[in-house]
Write a protein that binds this DNA or RNA. Structure first.
Length: 151
DNA sequence: GCCAACGTTGGC
DNA sequence: GCCAACGTTGGC
């Protein structure tokens, strides 16, 4: 079992949006970065634990606990010309983008990036590194356990 | 709105 | 295969 941090813009899907969805589950569509895609396609397994993170918003930070509910399958938005994530180079025979499904375990208090940065134990967290833009990052088991002590 | 960082594109 | 130009991300 592995641990991950997945960024979502709350203007798109917030933790409250996720809580209101059927099964509290969402398809993690729209990832158009190969590294993040590969994490989903090649490494994420059902039951993997996820920090649900709000990004590009007023209060960025961890907003919930979630888990992988379905292994990777082709992201349907790549095939839809009306969708902003449409990819003309993708075909049904040869899909380019994949997504897992993520299910909310529980909403948490908002653990801000500012607070995360105050802990030296978390200094190496990928999401805290300067210039990090990757929307899905692995979380070290020790970092996960540490965060869970005060989340 | 700024801008640093980084991924992608495309001409050569 | 190089690399400059461009686009995007995302915290601040």
């Amino acid at each position: 079992m592995r641990y991950w941090l997945m960024k979502s813009e709350p203007s798109d899907v917030s933790v409250d949006d996720l809580a209101a969805l059927p099964g509290q589950t969402v398809a993690w569509y729209g990832v158009r970065n190969y590294q993040a895609r590969n994490f989903m396609r090649d490494q994420m397994k059902v039951g993997d634990k996820v920090f649900f993170y709000h990004s590009s918003c007023e209060r960025p930070g961890i907003a919930g606990l979630a888990e992988v509910a379905r292994p990777a399958y082709p992201d349907r938005t790549q095939f839809d010309p009306e969708n902003k994530y449409f990819d003309p180079k993708a075909t049904a025979e040869s899909p380019r983008w994949f997504n897992v499904d993520v299910r909310l375990v529980r909403k948490t208090r908002l653990l801000s990036i500012k607070e995360l940065r105050q802990h030296p134990e978390l200094a190496n967290m990928r999401v805290l590194q300067k210039g990090n833009r990757l929307s899905i990052t692995p979380v070290d088991p020790g970092e996960w356990a540490f965060i869970m002590t005060f989340l």
